[in-house]
């Protein structure tokens, strides 16, 4: 419910998406684990971090009217995605997924599903209309090649409960352990997407949507069957834990 209102808000400003997003990034930047990408993303906003990273800021971000070098169509396209998912695919907006390190095939399927309407989300469904299907391959390749960043949690009790669910499942409701399908460190693959370091709010939104059936593009209904066995509290806990999950060496 909460995320819907948010998405609708975003849809209204689809055409000024970048402006909207820069604004939101600034608001969220302090709560997130900082990385250079995030800092350069908020370069236009008057925050101390932004000022400090001015040197690192890309010319496009500071002066879009006069780019120093001409951008290729792909780079230009990437800027659209970067506004919401960050240039390196490690989105710092809680509702937006981190794309970095997702399997290429998985990303391709999601983009096609958004395009065809098999998966819907007010924001992403609107954005995908601006993107030609021919561009999907390169976008998927780019984001799958990025390194996934993880977050730091300030809710240790929630993390502890989430670890239990991730590794053992929930015995009472017979929810299987997430680890079984998504891998011991949540690094996933084409069939079972990477969950490690994923934004907690995004994960809760997906689990809620799988449970209600609003998202039903999971192959063979496996993820819907899992989500139906989780309550809101368990979703929040497992999402919090996964956002901090480190990749196995």
């Amino acid at each position: 419910m909460k995320h819907k209102t948010n998405s609708n808000g975003l849809q209204v400003c689809t055409f000024i998406a970048l402006i909207c997003v820069l604004f939101m990034s600034a608001a969220h930047a302090e709560t997130m684990q900082s990385n250079e990408a995030a800092a350069s993303e908020v370069a236009a906003a008057p925050t101390p971090e932004a000022a400090a990273s001015e040197v690192a800021a890309t010319p496009e971000a500071t002066a879009p009217e006069a780019p120093a070098v001409a951008l290729s169509p792909f780079e230009e396209r990437l800027q659209l995605c970067a506004g919401c998912h960050n240039p390196d695919g490690n989105s710092i907006i809680p509702e937006n997924p981190r794309l970095a390190g997702l399997d290429k095939k998985y990303i391709l399927i999601q983009l096609r599903d958004f395009k065809s309407g098999d998966r819907t989300n007010a924001t992403m469904s609107a954005i995908i209309q601006m993107v030609d299907e021919k561009e999907f391959e390169d976008l998927a390749k780019y984001f799958s090649g990025q390194k996934r960043q993880i977050s730091v949690s300030e809710k240790p009790e929630l993390v502890e409960q989430g670890k239990q669910i991730f590794e053992e499942g929930v015995i009472g409701s017979a929810a299987p352990a997430c680890m079984g399908c998504h891998g011991e460190d949540g690094s996933g693959d084409a069939k079972f997407p990477r969950l490690q370091g994923q934004n907690a709010q995004y994960v809760v939104n997906q689990l809620t949507n799988f449970k209600s059936g609003e998202r039903a593009n999971d192959a063979k209904g496996l993820m819907r069957a899992v989500a139906k066995r989780l309550n809101e509290q368990e979703m929040a806990a497992v999402a919090e834990y996964m956002s901090t999950l480190k990749e196995a060496e």
Partner: peptide
């Protein structure tokens, strides 16, 4: 069998309980 591992575990030995 990967889809079964969440309950029966990756070595298919189940759970002790």
């Amino acid at each position: 069998f990967r889809g079964c591992q969440g309950c029966h575990k990756s070595d298919a030995a189940g759970v002790r309980e």
